[in-house]
Design a protein around this nucleic acid. Structure first.
Lengths: 188, 188
DNA sequence: GCGCCGCTTCATTTTTTATTGAAATCTTTT
DNA sequence: AAAAGATTTCAATAAAAAATGAAGCGGCGC
């Protein structure tokens, strides 16, 4: 049977239940409440991911780790989110890249397990470092190049373009100043 | 001949030249300097657009309007950026939606002409209003729903999930506070 | 009111991006 | 050092997003 999805990845409820909770929760609440919560929280992060231009699978993984009370292995993640090996691997790599998750050792388990970074501040900071900064930098280079082009214009037209480039550079610097400030204001 | 593109839309240089400058610039500088500048500045905005998840055509249009010294009609934009009617129309609509451009009347011309909003502050503000806010709001609703689900959990497990939801809500409110603050710090 | 011009909409096509799963690589265990 | 297990990579496929252009609308001048 091929996987299907709609507004949040459907999880394999039975196996999730037994895997994640030492079996004790299997009959503790109405059948699917936990799964419903996990799914909804997952969706929160999927939306957030889309908002900042990250693939949904990445948001999905982070969401699951965020609501999980214990570290999960890649295989557990893969199974519960019903996603392919490749996606899981790449998603985890990306999340590690901007320090949204950490690898922890679970005694007795061989493979690495993952937990969500509990500090949103660090999460946002990592994201900015990894995804925003490079753009700002390449933008700076481009502006330099444009300045050189402007210098080649006939003098009476230079003023106009120079003003534009100045503005752009000002905006650019504003971003440079503001982003770290923004991060420092996140207190979670 | 079909249009082609690479790292920024190629413009029809000849026609752009005569259209945009009353013909006087046609021989005032090295053949393509102005076009080179326009192209590079355009690229700045295309990158910015991609960064915030807006289609490249939108960034392209805004970039062109930004470096243009006079208002341009949709047809002029369409021609100089070599894009389809539909794209131009939709792009302009989107730009208007978050007040990145304004419609001006050019005496003697029948159709509406467009200029770029000169204040980046207002531009960013409009973008946030239009693109970010709705997401924050729907997120809020989702969190409410999750709270209700948590209330249905067995008591000993509620604490864990409630803490998670509390954190999410805190982050959410942080965003709510921070975004306007961020806008107010842009001075351009 | 009629026809024209410019704009918008929308079904279709194209392009881009993400997902998949099998093969290659690297790791640990025996 | 061999074998098994886990992870990464990558070429192929599937899904999503954006561009296109023709058909439809609406206002303006005649």
């Amino acid at each position: 049977m091929k996987s299907f999805r709609c507004a949040g990845r459907l999880r394999a409820i039975e196996s999730a239940e037994t895997e994640s909770n030492n079996g004790k929760a299997a009959l503790s609440s109405q059948p699917g409440t936990r799964e419903l919560i996990e799914r909804e929280v997952g969706e929160v992060f999927v939306r957030a991911a889309r908002l900042v231009g990250v693939p949904r699978s990445v948001g999905d993984i982070f969401g699951l780790l965020y609501v999980s009370s214990e570290p999960l292995s890649m295989e557990q993640i893969r199974t519960r989110l019903d996603m392919s090996l490749g996606s899981a691997s790449q998603g985890l790599r990306q999340l590690r890249a901007f320090r949204a998750i950490k690898v922890v050792d679970v005694p007795g388990e061989r493979r690495g397990h993952f937990v969500a970074e509990p500090s949103f501040r660090r999460l946002v900071s990592g994201f900015i470092q990894e995804e925003i900064r490079p753009h700002l930098e390449s933008g700076q280079e481009r502006l330099e190049r444009i300045r050189e082009l402007v210098a080649r214009m006939p003098p009476e037209e230079q003023a106009f373009y120079r003003k534009k480039v100045d503005q752009l550079e000002k905006l650019h610097r504003t971003g440079d100043r503001l982003l770290p400030m923004l991060v420092s204001l996140i207190k979670i």
